[in-house]
């Protein structure tokens, strides 16, 4: 159910995204960091669904809060001539890997159990 809606969302997004106007190059670095932040939140959301502790408020605030904070940090970094966005990228991508690992473990366990059940049934 969740994955179907994710796939539908992705396909629709790709179709719409291909037809929207291009933004100016100056702002593309901000959009890029916002994308990374949002991607991190989506993986976090999937993980929390798996862990069954999904909270709508936390998810929504994380989605927008992270994106806005990372954009603000990128802007500040540009003013100060420090590549702060690199720190944001490191944190977000690191979290993404952690979340992906949790999701992977969950499904690997699930499938192993299923196969074990199937093979025990066949033996009987």
């Amino acid at each position: 159910m969740i994955y179907i809606s994710i796939i539908i969302g992705c396909i629709l997004g790709a179709i719409i995204g291909m037809n929207t106007p291009v933004i100016s190059y100056t702002y593309s670095s901000y959009l890029a960091i916002a994308i990374i932040a949002a991607l991190d939140t989506v993986f976090g959301g999937i993980t929390s669904v798996i862990k069954k502790n999904f909270d709508l408020k936390i998810f929504l605030s994380g989605f927008f809060g992270n994106a806005i904070l990372s954009i603000a940090l990128t802007y500040l970094g540009e003013r100060l001539n420090v590549d702060i966005y690199l720190a944001a990228v490191v944190v977000f991508v690191g979290r993404m890997f952690t979340n992906l690992a949790i999701i992977r473990r969950y499904y690997v366990d699930k499938w192993t159990n299923k196969f074990a059940e199937l093979s025990s049934k066949n033996k009987k």
Binding site: S5, G9, I11, V22, V49
Partner: peptide, 30 residues
């Protein structure tokens, strides 16, 4: 609850892909 979560994640992914596509096109055009 499940449906709500699914719809929300779907919308999030929709926004995300729109952003990614726009960004990719911006980068290729520049």
């Amino acid at each position: 609850q499940e449906k709500k979560i699914a719809a929300l994640l779907g919308i999030m992914c929709f926004m995300l892909t729109v952003g990614i596509c726009v960004q990719m096109r911006t980068v290729t055009s520049t």
